[in-house]
Deep mutational scan, measured.
Amino acid sequence: TSEVNPQMLQDLQAAGFDEDMVIQALQKTNNRSIEAAIEFISKM
């Protein structure tokens, strides 16, 4: 599995997102940004 940015993971979990969804979103967006991860999650 590709690495996820631990700070982004922590921030998104703090915002109430599920850890598994956050990890998948960060991997799919290559840790580009929190906004990109949220957009990915919203389309899941």
Rank of each mutant, 00 (worst) to 15 (best):
T1P: 08
T1M: 11
T1E: 14
T1G: 14
T1L: 06
T1Q: 12
T1K: 13
T1W: 08
T1Y: 07
S2I: 13
S2V: 06
S2C: 09
S2N: 12
S2A: 11
S2E: 13
S2Q: 12
S2W: 09
S2H: 09
E3L: 05
E3D: 11
E3T: 10
E3G: 10
E3N: 10
E3P: 11
E3V: 01
E3Q: 10
E3A: 07
E3Y: 08
E3W: 10
E3C: 00
V4I: 09
V4K: 04
V4L: 05
V4H: 06
V4G: 05
V4Q: 05
V4W: 02
V4Y: 06
N5Q: 03
N5C: 07
N5A: 00
N5L: 00
N5S: 08
N5V: 01
N5D: 13
N5G: 01
N5F: 00
N5M: 00
P6M: 13
P6L: 10
P6D: 13
P6N: 15
P6T: 14
P6G: 12
P6C: 07
P6Y: 10
P6R: 14
Q7Y: 05
Q7M: 08
Q7S: 09
Q7N: 07
Q7W: 04
Q7V: 09
Q7E: 12
Q7L: 06
M8Q: 03
M8H: 07
M8L: 08
M8D: 04
M8T: 04
M8R: 02
M8C: 01
M8V: 03
M8S: 03
L9K: 15
L9Y: 04
L9A: 13
L9R: 11
L9V: 12
L9P: 03
L9M: 08
L9F: 11
L9I: 05
Q10A: 14
Q10C: 07
Q10T: 08
Q10W: 06
Q10D: 10
Q10N: 11
Q10S: 11
D11I: 11
D11E: 15
D11Q: 15
D11A: 13
D11K: 15
D11W: 07
D11F: 12
L12P: 02
L12H: 02
L12Y: 00
L12I: 05
L12G: 02
L12R: 01
L12K: 01
L12E: 03
L12Q: 02
L12D: 04
L12T: 02
L12V: 02
Q13D: 03
Q13F: 03
Q13I: 15
Q13Y: 03
Q13E: 08
Q13R: 15
Q13S: 10
Q13C: 14
Q13V: 15
Q13A: 10
Q13M: 14
Q13L: 15
A14N: 10
A14Q: 10
A14Y: 05
A14S: 12
A14W: 01
A14C: 06
A14G: 08
A14P: 00
A14D: 14
A15F: 06
A15H: 05
A15D: 05
A15E: 06
A15Y: 08
A15Q: 14
A15P: 00
A15V: 04
A15W: 04
A15T: 04
G16E: 02
G16F: 00
G16M: 00
G16N: 03
G16A: 01
G16W: 00
G16T: 01
G16P: 01
F17A: 04
F17G: 04
F17W: 08
F17D: 08
F17Q: 05
F17E: 06
F17V: 03
F17R: 01
F17C: 03
F17H: 10
F17T: 02
F17M: 05
D18R: 07
D18H: 09
D18Q: 11
D18N: 08
D18A: 13
D18C: 08
D18F: 02
D18E: 14
D18W: 00
D18V: 02
D18G: 09
E19T: 14
E19H: 13
E19P: 11
E19K: 15
E19Q: 13
E19D: 09
E19V: 09
D20R: 10
D20P: 09
D20S: 12
D20M: 09
D20Q: 11
D20A: 12
D20N: 12
D20Y: 03
D20E: 13
D20G: 11
D20L: 06
M21S: 12
M21N: 09
M21W: 06
M21I: 15
M21Y: 05
M21P: 03
M21L: 14
M21F: 06
M21G: 05
M21V: 15
V22E: 05
V22S: 15
V22R: 02
V22N: 04
V22A: 15
V22K: 03
V22P: 03
V22D: 03
V22W: 01
V22H: 02
V22Q: 03
V22F: 01
V22Y: 01
I23F: 06
I23R: 14
I23H: 06
I23G: 06
I23Y: 08
I23E: 10
I23M: 12
I23V: 14
I23K: 14
I23S: 08
I23W: 05
I23P: 02
I23D: 06
I23Q: 09
I23A: 10
Q24W: 11
Q24Y: 07
Q24L: 14
Q24S: 08
Q24P: 06
Q24V: 13
Q24F: 14
Q24H: 15
A25L: 01
A25M: 00
A25E: 01
A25W: 01
A25P: 04
A25K: 01
A25I: 02
L26M: 02
L26C: 04
L26T: 01
L26V: 02
L26K: 04
L26Y: 14
L26W: 01
L26E: 06
Q27W: 02
Q27S: 11
Q27L: 11
Q27K: 15
Q27H: 06
Q27G: 06
Q27M: 10
Q27P: 02
Q27T: 13
Q27C: 06
K28W: 04
K28T: 07
K28S: 12
K28Q: 13
K28H: 15
K28L: 05
K28C: 10
T29K: 01
T29G: 03
T29M: 00
T29F: 00
T29D: 00
T29N: 04
T29I: 02
T29W: 00
N30T: 03
N30F: 00
N30H: 08
N30G: 14
N30L: 00
N30K: 13
N30A: 08
N30D: 11
N31R: 00
N31E: 07
N31D: 03
N31Q: 02
N31C: 10
R32M: 11
R32G: 08
R32C: 13
R32P: 04
R32K: 15
R32T: 13
R32L: 09
R32S: 14
R32E: 15
R32Q: 15
R32D: 07
S33L: 00
S33N: 02
S33F: 02
S33V: 00
S33R: 00
S33E: 01
S33W: 00
S33Q: 00
S33K: 03
I34N: 10
I34K: 14
I34A: 12
I34D: 07
I34T: 14
I34H: 11
I34S: 08
I34P: 12
I34L: 13
I34Q: 11
I34C: 13
E35G: 09
E35P: 09
E35S: 10
E35N: 08
E35A: 09
E35T: 09
E35D: 13
A36P: 05
A36L: 05
A36Q: 06
A36T: 07
A36F: 01
A36G: 08
A36N: 05
A37K: 00
A37N: 04
A37M: 02
A37R: 01
A37G: 05
A37L: 01
I38Y: 10
I38Q: 13
I38P: 09
I38K: 15
I38W: 05
I38R: 13
I38T: 12
I38A: 12
I38G: 09
I38S: 10
I38L: 11
E39F: 00
E39P: 03
E39A: 11
E39D: 10
E39Q: 09
E39H: 11
E39S: 09
E39N: 10
E39M: 06
F40G: 09
F40D: 12
F40V: 11
F40Q: 11
F40N: 07
F40P: 09
F40C: 13
F40I: 09
I41A: 06
I41E: 09
I41V: 04
I41D: 11
I41P: 07
I41Y: 04
I41G: 06
I41T: 07
S42L: 07
S42P: 05
S42F: 07
S42W: 10
S42D: 14
S42C: 07
S42T: 15
S42V: 07
S42Q: 15
S42G: 13
K43T: 13
K43M: 11
K43G: 12
K43W: 07
K43Q: 15
K43N: 12
M44E: 15
M44S: 12
M44Q: 15
M44G: 12
M44N: 15
